[in-house]
Amino acid sequence: MSFSDLHLCLLFSSALFCVGLIGVLARSNTILVLLGVELMLNAANINFIAFWRFGPTPEPATGVMFVLFAIAVAAAEAAVGLALVIAIYRHKRTIRLQEANTLKG
């Protein structure tokens, strides 16, 4: 089996993605689920950087630019998600995912 540095980076990001995925599926705490989603987003960003750095045709800074925008959108997503968690906690007095099963306020 022959592999290059790009393979190593992709394996790293795959493992990180699956750690996040297992966290999302296994935990019933809303905040931990959100953190798992953040981990998966970070794994995708690692892929962008890896392909930018080790890709066959290194375009100038395209991957870097994409990751910058992705980080900005991820920050917005984290803020809105945690605000939703707080709103759910105010209504239900718990942040257990199984309890938040209605759309009624």
Binding site: M1, F3, S4, L6, L10, L11, C18, L21, I22, F54
Partner: peptide, 22 residues
């Protein structure tokens, strides 16, 4: 189980793809 399956699929796909470093 689901995470391990996804990891296996991803690792298999990555390792079986001939990626050339720059």
């Amino acid at each position: 189980i689901v995470g391990g399956t996804v990891l296996g699929v991803l690792v298999g796909a990555v390792l079986s793809t001939p990626l050339k470093s720059a």
